[in-house]
């Protein structure tokens, strides 16, 4: 585990400089006018970022309203019978519900839960595994679809949420195995 960790952290530290060096030097080697071409590509950065704005604003506002109202407590009461059935501990339910909605919100919940139950307790390990193993689905969908102006997202949201749910079940299972 320690060797794996060292290798991966080394890789992530070296990846960016190595990539920059390799791409640009290889480009120059293949007679690409690197600076001119890079500037041309960089221009798109602005358009894409600006195109995302309306999607991101509306998505985040809807999530912020839900969070500020404290509706999550009500929601937890509603889904609890279901999650009890599949064995998700009630203590991590706020995390499971917040994780796909908000990155900063779930970071706060992870910190709170670990403070309340201990970082190395089963609940503490589970809640940080949950945080570490999934993404903020709503944010990703808003940004990625926003960038290309997709309004009809078809099955993307149910797929993302089901995958989150599977990730939670898997996290509960694997943390149970380890501890």
């Amino acid at each position: 585990m320690d060797i794996f960790r060292t290798v991966v952290s080394l890789l992530s530290a070296v990846a960016i400089p190595a990539l920059l060096l390799f791409f640009l030097v290889y480009g120059a080697f293949r007679k690409v006018k690197v600076y001119e071409v890079a500037v041309e590509g960089a221009k798109e950065g602005f358009t894409i970022a600006v195109r995302i704005i309306p999607y991101l604003v509306l998505m985040l506002v809807s999530i912020a309203i839900f969070r500020a109202s404290g509706a999550m407590d009500v929601f937890i009461t509603l889904v609890r019978p279901l999650t009890d059935l599949v064995g998700i501990p009630a203590e991590v339910l706020p995390m499971a519900i917040m994780r796909p909605l908000s990155g900063s919100g779930s970071l706060g919940i992870m910190t709170e839960t670990m403070r309340a139950y201990g970082t190395d307790s089963p609940i503490g390990v589970l809640v940080s595994t949950l945080y570490g193993s999934t993404e903020t689905t709503f944010y990703v969908l808003a940004v990625y679809f926003g960038a290309v102006g997709i309004r009809n997202t078809r099955h993307a949201l149910p797929t993302g949420l089901l995958a989150d749910f599977i990730a939670f079940l898997a996290a509960v299972f694997f943390v149970g195995l380890v501890l």
Binding site: F23, G27, R30, V32, V37, A38, A42, G45, A49, L60
Partner: peptide
Amino acid sequence: IAGVAVQIAIGLIGIMALWLGVMKVAEKA
């Protein structure tokens, strides 16, 4: 959050420009 959302998007501009520029070179090559 409406203001924060715009800040997040604006904050993406720099990093987007950098990587899209580098990607363009890699693509041309």
